[in-house]
Amino acid sequence: MEEGHLEFGPLGKGCVHLCVDMQRLFAEGPWEAPWVKRVLPVVERLASARADRTIFTRFIPVERPGEGVGSWKRYYERWGDVTLERLAPGMTELLPPLARLVPPAEVLDKTVYSPWLQGDLHGRLQARGCDTLVISGAETDVCVLGAVMGAVDRGYRVVLPTDALCSSRDATHDALLTLYRERFGQQVETAMTEEVLRAWQ
């Protein structure tokens, strides 16, 4: 699959932009992903162009260290500084250029990587007549991965604007894009944001 080529044609009325976890939580502090600030203007441009067709997800940590089910309990023993009782106020909020788009954009909160397990994302999309998801945000190899695989399993066409994705690890970001292109070619397309916006009329 060539970069910048939407193999399955234009994006129609059934397209929705799912923007994953573009929050202060990932722009500063222990979980800072430096790419977040770099891709923010691109994500903002994409979301602004279709704010009424955008859903932002927010990752919400547990209240205090050691909470969580199964391996999440161990996870929050390791990452106690990013629990709600220790985070500075406002850290789970969307970054300001994106927060100003709500409404008409919507917000879906989740406590795990995937946005498909809480908040009835699939139902909300079906109510909009959605058949295609443009997925942007953070991080390519964690929460975006969860969003992509859930979308694929539910039969959505998935479009990834590669310049609107970010990770704290270059190697795994690149590896995931390679995986999508080489193994998910019938379900996942990659293109630059400019190409996506031209196709979404």
Rank of each mutant, 00 (worst) to 15 (best):
C19H: 00
E44T: 08
E44H: 10
L108W: 06
P65A: 13
V20H: 00
D120M: 12
V20I: 11
E85H: 03
A47E: 00
R38F: 03
H17M: 03
V16W: 01
P89R: 06
V43A: 04
L117K: 11
L11V: 01
A27N: 02
G137A: 12
L125F: 12
P30N: 07
P30Y: 04
V42R: 00
R58A: 01
D109N: 14
E44G: 03
Y75W: 14
V39W: 03
A105P: 04
Q126Y: 14
R86V: 01
M22V: 05
G123Y: 12
P97W: 10
Y75A: 12
H17S: 01
T57R: 01
K73Y: 13
P41H: 04
I60C: 07
L101C: 08
G14S: 11
D81V: 03
L87Y: 14
L40M: 01
E28G: 06
E63V: 09
P34S: 04
G66L: 11
L94T: 01
R58W: 07
G68H: 04
L46M: 07
R24F: 04
D131H: 15
E106K: 07
G90P: 10
L117H: 13
L84W: 08
R78D: 12
P96Q: 09
G129M: 10
V134D: 07
V82C: 08
V102H: 14
V42T: 10
S48H: 07
V102T: 13
P104L: 07
P41Q: 02
R74K: 11
R53H: 09
I55V: 12
Y113E: 09
L121Q: 02
P115Y: 06
C130W: 11
A127Y: 15
D81S: 15
W35A: 00
G80W: 14
P89N: 13
Y113Q: 09
E85I: 09
R58N: 12
G29Y: 08
E77Q: 15
M91W: 05
L87T: 10
L98M: 08
